[in-house]
Amino acid sequence: MAPTQEEGGTDDLQYGVLDLRRKAMIAEGKPIDHAGSIIVQRADGFDLDKTIFKSVDKKLPRMMAQERLSVEVYWSDRSTTQISESFNKVPAAPRFDAPILEFMQTECNFCMEHADGSFMDHLRFCFEYSMVHFKGHSPRVMFLHSILGVGTNYFPMEKEKIPKLRELLNEVEMKHIEAFPSILRLLYHGQLMDELLADAETLPKTLQSISFHRVIDNEELVLTADEFWVALNYQLMHQLDFLPVANWAEAVDDQFFVFFLGLYEVLTRAGKLEAEVNFDLKMATPPSDLARPSMTLGRFINKIVPGTVKKNIARQTVARFSELINHSLDYKLTLSSP
């Protein structure tokens, strides 16, 4: 069996590493349930306080985050070969723009670990997936989507540096980058997702714009309807990196999975799915015992807590993080008559 990480060298410290899970998604243009191809074990020495989730301080959400993240994935030799060969057929991504990378290294702090690997690993995946599977839209949005804040109130740069960031981007890129953290919170908070699911077929005809508040300073932002649908496609691709690596049949109430399914449904029903995300839950992969990490108190609690309770916890957590930084979760959908 091969371990998750397989690259190395000084360049990877700058550009991040793509593990096999991420390479497979880029190569195939879809999330994949890898049950039967991997072994999942507990990660020795995992420290939640070294990740972007360190600020999760409520006992139950913290225990559930620890349970989900403290794992290591080992791959079969066959899968390692197949994924590597498929990924090598994908046109190589360009290196990140030097001025942007320099700004990130000298003006920002991306040293925190992410949900799976380093922050730069996550940003590289988002950039490369978008470049290959969202033609006609800038992949730099996905590379910089977190620069103005993540959902757990970690801010890689100060708001005073926004003018410098703006100089490095075009107007469309900047608009999506500053909107990304806000749209993410609004969707996870639930009210916006519920509204989109309820009216997915009619909104393409009636939606004019959406107004909301920027996470880093609560400034009001506005996206047109067309910009909003593009923003939701960026959100969907971003969510790919948080899906369970295997045993999807047992993850129906995993809140990252629930979020992805809801957003995918909105975009497909609205006819606004532009990004290539070939997803079909009907083609389920049988669960694998080897893809289940050892039982812990966190895993046991995660199994017995009802999905509705998990959803409420997730929504309350978003509200609490925004309240701590005086960020308003108010938004307004401006509609025309159908």
Score class of each variant (00 low, 15 high):
residue 189 H to Y: 11
residue 182 S to T: 04
residue 129 Y to W: 07
residue 167 E to M: 13
residue 202 T to A: 14
residue 165 L to K: 10
residue 156 P to N: 11
residue 180 F to R: 09
residue 143 F to E: 12
residue 149 G to S: 08
residue 229 W to Q: 07
residue 172 V to S: 14
residue 134 F to A: 11
residue 176 H to Q: 15
residue 194 D to G: 15
residue 182 S to H: 06
residue 231 A to I: 00
residue 167 E to L: 11
residue 160 E to V: 14
residue 139 P to R: 10
residue 175 K to L: 03
residue 178 E to M: 13
residue 160 E to L: 04
residue 237 M to I: 14
residue 181 P to W: 06
residue 213 H to A: 02
residue 161 K to S: 11
residue 199 D to P: 01
residue 140 R to L: 13
residue 223 L to S: 00
residue 150 V to I: 14
residue 220 E to T: 14
residue 184 L to H: 15
residue 142 M to S: 15
residue 148 L to S: 11
residue 144 L to K: 12
residue 133 H to L: 06
residue 156 P to R: 05
residue 134 F to R: 10
residue 169 L to Y: 01
residue 231 A to G: 02
residue 211 S to V: 05
residue 228 F to Y: 05
residue 210 I to T: 01
residue 229 W to F: 11
residue 226 D to M: 01
residue 222 V to S: 12
residue 144 L to F: 09
residue 207 L to F: 00
residue 222 V to L: 08
residue 194 D to W: 06
residue 147 I to M: 11
residue 185 R to H: 13
residue 207 L to V: 01
residue 170 N to V: 00
residue 175 K to T: 04
residue 211 S to N: 04
residue 204 P to H: 04
residue 145 H to G: 07
residue 234 Y to K: 01
residue 216 I to L: 10
residue 149 G to C: 06
residue 218 N to V: 07
residue 160 E to I: 12
residue 134 F to D: 02
residue 238 H to A: 09
residue 227 E to D: 08
residue 196 L to W: 00
residue 172 V to R: 12
residue 139 P to M: 03
residue 211 S to H: 05
residue 130 S to K: 04
residue 207 L to G: 10
residue 174 M to R: 02
residue 135 K to L: 12
residue 181 P to C: 02
residue 237 M to Y: 02
residue 234 Y to G: 00
residue 188 Y to S: 13
residue 157 M to K: 06
residue 171 E to D: 15
residue 215 V to M: 06
residue 208 Q to K: 13
residue 203 L to S: 07
residue 192 L to E: 02
residue 202 T to I: 14
residue 178 E to T: 15
residue 141 V to M: 04
residue 220 E to K: 15
residue 218 N to K: 03
residue 236 L to G: 10
residue 206 T to Q: 12
residue 214 R to A: 05
residue 156 P to H: 07
residue 231 A to L: 05
residue 198 A to M: 12
residue 185 R to Q: 13
residue 194 D to R: 14
residue 199 D to Q: 14
residue 218 N to Q: 07
residue 196 L to M: 14
residue 221 L to I: 10
residue 134 F to V: 13
